[in-house]
């Protein structure tokens, strides 16, 4: 089992004819994902990786029964693409695109909530559940079915950590990248709650970074609601204040958002904090020994 997706998830790829969309829809299919349609305005009838492309989401949904979407369209058009998917009745939308304006996200999330839609991202690797499917861009090669649930604000750092887990003989139930932006559709606490309920997840790994207070809020949530063991790694301990470290959300402003504050919040919540990414599998192995 997995969180967010299952064998009935029928995936549509918005922006499938672009370089990223084409490449990653193939990788998603190789991972066993049921991709039923693509959408690119003006490209109706084109076939990409054996998948039919439609001009609009509504027609694609009507003809294929798609119920989830992965968005690769450029940032300027992401808001319209997601609104179109919401209006067509899609209930799960993964936004891979980076540099989506914050105001667009705030508006989108209000629409999504009103319509009972889950948005993951933007600027994220999405969902990967080995054995079930993948809605996003996490490399297939690092993933293996298993019991560890991974949730992260980062991209490549997540692949690195997941790879460490896999190379050390363990595997993942679901790997979920929520993205490094200021306004993420899905938060750490949303995912922690789902991992806690998911019977196929026995331990949780969180990958956080500097900026904002998402990790501190997650720590509060863990104290009250999570009984499964949680492990964390925080990037940016030595990042200078006031400088944006790549991600829109990764910035220390004044006292807020420091790695120190996040690590101390985690420790207070009983979360084991790794000093290095390579320590994560060591901590996990210790858990399974006892």
């Amino acid at each position: 089992m997995a969180i967010f997706i299952d064998k009935n998830t029928r995936v549509l790829v918005q922006g499938i004819t672009g370089h990223q969309g084409t490449f990653h829809s193939k990788a998603m299919m190789d991972f066993g994902t049921n991709i039923v349609a693509g959408v690119t305005p003006g490209k109706n009838g084109v076939v990409v990786n054996g998948v039919k492309v439609y001009n609009d989401v509504k027609t694609a949904v009507d003809e294929t029964g798609a119920n989830a979407s992965v968005v690769f369209v450029p940032a300027q058009f992401t808001k319209d693409a997601v609104l179109e998917a919401i209006n067509a009745g899609i209930k799960l939308i993964v936004v891979v695109t980076e540099h989506v304006p914050s105001h667009d996200m705030v508006e989108l999330l209000l629409y999504a909530k009103r319509n009972g839609v889950t948005v993951i991202g933007p600027n994220c690797p999405g969902i990967a559940s080995p054995g079930v499917g993948k809605l996003g861009i996490t490399p297939n090669s690092v993933l293996k079915p298993g019991k560890i649930g991974v949730v992260s604000r980062s991209g490549t750092l997540t692949y690195e950590i997941v790879n460490y887990i896999t190379e050390n003989g363990m595997g993942e139930s679901t790997v979920l990248g929520i993205g490094g932006d200021k306004v993420p559709g899905t938060t750490f606490t949303d995912v922690l709650g789902m991992f806690e309920k998911d019977k196929d997840t026995s331990a949780i790994v969180m990958v956080g970074e500097i900026g904002g207070s998402a990790e501190e809020e997650a720590a509060e949530f863990i104290k009250k609601n999570v009984s499964k063991p949680v492990f964390a790694y925080i990037a940016g301990v030595y990042a200078p204040p006031g400088k944006r470290m790549g991600h829109a959300g990764a910035i220390i402003s004044g006292e807020a958002g420091t790695a120190e504050s996040k690590i101390s919040a985690f420790k207070k919540a009983g979360v084991s904090v790794a000093a290095l990414p390579s320590e994560i599998p060591v901590l996990l192995k210790n858990l399974y020994k006892t």
Binding site: S152, R153, S154, G155, T156, L157, T158, E160, G180, V207, E209, I210, Y233, A235, G236, V237, Y238, A239, M245, G246, H247, A250, A275, L276, P277
Partner: peptide, 17 residues
């Protein structure tokens, strides 16, 4: 030089450590 913001930050941290 690294790829990805998180991995780059993590590289900085490990060098400093």
């Amino acid at each position: 030089i690294a790829n990805g913001a998180g991995l780059t930050m993590s590289t900085i941290d490990q060098i400093a450590l």
